[in-house]
């Protein structure tokens, strides 16, 4: 393994990092959206799993022979699949709201209900090897070729081709990946520079004061839970419509919980959450690449690091994570 081409390994690591961090980032944005509104959402995992499933099944259904060819064209088919996933996530967000706001169920319990329900329902309706007519294509193909690039030889087994290798990182990505980047900055801007953002943050910090000022706390919480659920839904369908292309049972494999970690890591700010997601992604990519780089260190121990770091950050040993003051508590209108 020592003679592996390091240039290839490097590009693979970076691309893996990006691909891994997309759903995590979207999950973290979902968490930020909910917690900034005062509702803890540990159901992100379930929202992602269920949306991954409905998005995929929509794709499967529309791919069947006999369906109107207009619906089968890649754009319409995948567009509708994403829409189904978004609505699924949004609906679960509303369920979370119904349970935790209307019925005053503890928010952790409500999130747990969503997680277990998602595993159960997706497992129940799971079909082995359901075929589709393909997943999301690359939005922009790499315009550069290896032949037309400058060869940059950094070492005997470390060759980079510019700008071809740069293009392999920047391009060849699907719609959701680029959209995630836009959403990070959009949400960051909206939270801190719009009336909606101010109101959202105020109901997360002090709903009583916000209520006194005439903000409809519950309505805004429901709205944000719906939008937050849709973000988790987008993250979920990224797995089945862009990254993997098929649905496997329990395929989110804890990504929703990692998203929570990333949210805390990013101190409830979208751009820092993105940075956190990339860090988690890199740690995960490294797990698979350690041997490639000739490092003999147990990959499981590397895999532990992000979680340990999250605890360290949460405990305030490094920096200080401060959740929205009223997050997790039920607000009761008087």
């Amino acid at each position: 393994m020592g003679e592996a081409e390091l240039g290839l390994a490097l590009i693979a690591t970076i691309n893996f990092t990006i691909r891994y961090s997309v759903p995590i980032t979207l999950g973290a944005l979902s968490g930020i959206m909910c917690e900034r509104s005062g509702i803890v959402n540990i159901g992100i995992e379930g929202m992602m799993l269920m949306s991954a499933f409905t998005g995929f099944m929509t794709n499967v259904t529309l791919s069947k022979p006999g369906v109107d060819p207009d619906l089968q064209s890649a754009g319409v088919r995948l567009g509708l699949s994403i829409l189904a996933a978004l609505l699924t996530g949004g609906a679960l967000g509303l369920l979370h709201g119904l349970l935790s706001i209307q019925y005053k169920v503890d928010q952790i319990i409500s999130g747990t209900v969503i997680n277990i329900l998602a595993v159960g329902l997706t497992g129940y309706f799971y079909q082995l090897k359901a075929p589709t007519k393909g997943k999301l294509p690359a939005l922009i193909n790499n315009p550069w070729t290896q032949a037309g690039s400058v060869e940059l030889k950094l070492a005997d087994n470390f060759v980079l081709y510019l700008p071809y290798d740069l293009g392999r990182i920047l391009f060849d990505k699907d719609l959701i990946t680029y959209l995630t980047l836009i959403l990070v900055f959009l949400l960051g801007w909206a939270l801190f520079h719009t009336t909606w953002g101010l109101r959202t943050r105020s109901i997360g910090e002090n709903p009583r004061a916000a209520d006194t000022l005439g903000i409809n706390v519950y309505r805004l919480q429901y709205t944000n839970l719906f939008l937050g659920g849709m973000l988790a839904g987008l993250g979920g369908c990224f797995l089945t419509l862009a990254a993997v292309g098929i649905f496997e049972q329990n395929m989110t494999a804890g990504r929703g919980f990692i998203a929570l970690a990333v949210m805390i890591f990013g101190n409830w700010r979208p751009s820092r959450a993105l940075a956190g997601a990339l860090l988690f992604g890199f740690a995960t990519a490294l797990q698979g690449q350690l041997q490639q780089f000739g490092i003999d260190f147990p990959h499981q121990l590397v895999g532990m690091l992000p979680y340990i770091l999250t605890i360290v950050v949460l405990a305030g040993f490094v920096g200080r994570a401060r959740p929205p003051a009223h997050s997790g508590k039920v607000y009761e209108v008087e």
Binding site: S110, V113, L117, V119, G120, L121, T122, Y124
Partner: peptide, 12 residues
């Protein structure tokens, strides 16, 4: 997995 659905509903 039906059992998990039922268990989730019970918790709910």
């Amino acid at each position: 997995e039906l059992i998990q659905v039922i268990q989730a509903l019970i918790l709910m």
